[in-house]
Design a protein around this nucleic acid. Sequence first.
DNA 1: CTTAGGG
DNA 2: CCCTAAG
Length: 688
Amino acid sequence: METVIGIEDNDDGKLEERGVDRSNSALFSPKQISNPVVYKLVRVEGDGRLVPATDDEVMEVEDFLEYENSDMRVVADTGQSLECISIERSSSGKLRLECSEGVSQLGTSEADLGKLNAKFQYIEQILQKVKQEEKLRLSSRSPVHSHVQIDSQCSADNPVIIEKVQSKTPYQEAPSIASSLNYSHSNQSGSIDQCSRPSEGVIESGSSASAVNSALTHDFSMTDGEICLDKLSVKELHELFKVTFGRETTVKDKQWLRRRIAMSLTNSCDVSATTFTVKDKKITRKCEAESSGNVSAAPVISVENMAGEGDVKYKDSCVVEDCRVDDNQVASETRLETLNTEHELGDEDQQSEERAAKRMRKPTKRYIEELSENESREYNHRSSSSNKNTGHIHVSPTSNKNTGHRHVSPTSQVRPATNALPEARTFVTRLDSLGGYGVQIPCVSRVRRSRPRKTITSLMKFHPTGMVEAAKLGNKVVRDHGSEADSVIQDKISKPSSMPVKIHQPVRPTESASDRMSKSTSESGKEKQCPVTVTTEPRQESKPKKTDTSSCTEERNIVTVPTAKGGMRRKHHRAWTLVEVMKLIEGVSRCGPGRWSEIKRLSFSSYSHRTSVDLKDKWRNLLKASFAPTPADEGMNSRKHGTAPIPEPILVRVRELAEINSQVPPNFSSSKLTTTGGTVSGDRLGYL
DNA sequence: CTTAGGG
DNA sequence: CCCTAAG
């Protein structure tokens, strides 16, 4: 349904094929061949061989593929048709293949109907064609010119692939062409050059096709404008299947086939009837009432939402159910959703559905972890929306985020060993929007006493295959969010070493190395996934709000400052919010200044950052601010633009407290007790 | 570890 | 904010 083939003939003699290619050539195991649709990324070598792409290459184009896929789905959905496909050989004998897509502008409201009608018309013709072919075969016993045979002929000699394209079918769909192409060069030894042998030209089988097309006989399982899939034979169903999905199927199960086709015809996964009525040249499905109920129950799959942009469509997922994606990380939640709506599926169907769901990406563990992290941190600030306890944001198939129940499978919530205590400093990933995509960038939350590390930026870089790198990262992370003792150990390790060069320790078997390693095994495991799944989540709505503990905005203010020792230290700047300041003041008024740890315990227990030292510093700044500038302004407007002016009352309060605290100790210490300020201090001594 | 102060 | 020294 959405195969895209873009072949470019590079000068270096390599045909780099980007896009999803069905290659079931001899390169793959027979088992795979039996399954006609095995998407695999290949590189076409200069000699025409198909070489399985290396992991790196896959990585390279992964995002592209994703994008391309969704793109193509849109193309298919909106009824756009492939208008031109040409295969020609360059002078060097290399294959050149060009596809151009006709863009049919269908009204958005009428898109679906037009699409369905188009499909219907096309299928109608195909059915007639198949029937005709069968007649021919019966009468003449000559080789049948079904698509299959045509393709096999291509494998023999001819570049017949174009046969279907050139048939007068008005709504030729790209997938069909693609499938033909692939079948053609798959049946031979995987060489494109053979297939595109130019001498023979287009095969004659077009004659039969045109004949069929000219003779429109309406006796084909279609009576009174009603297509009844139930009446079709397996072969006919196969044919339908092929024209619908652009690929063959070996499934003998008629019911399954009917379902498949019905799904495609109605653009919906939830197909409860295999009979379609044609009214006014429009396909309408029977039993719409019950289906509508289903649709509303599972908004993600609803047909009405399909008009969206390049997001992954469930319908298409169903279409490509046979696709084997190597990615084992299946969005089980989506699968569940799909299955929920597919009440009446047979076993095979269910399997297919599951595989279909594999098209959906499951958010990485990493990401889930990050989400949970944010969850635990901003737990108080989050509204108790339906997706609260789940990994809310990610899989957002459609743009309407509020409609779907994001049902996350239990496994998604399993948080591996890193139980982030509220106070623990753990790493989080921050979400950046890069080119319209939300990108996860792992970052480390505040680290105290972190030793100068030379390559902080290496945290941002990921080498897909670098296991060592991953291990390093893991260690780094562990070190960063490790327990306090851990960091202390780090200090002890790195401090005495007067060597100017600080090597990061991961490989070095230090005293606690094994400990760290054992701790970091899970971590590094997770880390390793980052490079693989650093992929983008389509829509990252709702970044954590900037309110109090906006971890997101906080994390991005990491600045690396060069230190004297040549290392870099991280410097976070988290602007103190008003709430924090008020809490601080309250804490000071309650516990008195200087008892910062207690204040932190009392008022800042919910904030993982803001150590007692921070409180102290902030208080110092507050004092400075409250006294220094001009008593009138209190630094309101005299401050620079960036810093939010501290409200007057707060500063007043600070001054009061400061006054007290400056007065009280001398009052007591200076044992002279002249009682001048005694009354005042007595009033406000309550906090002590 | 906590506090205080310098940078 | 970070770092360090002193309890």
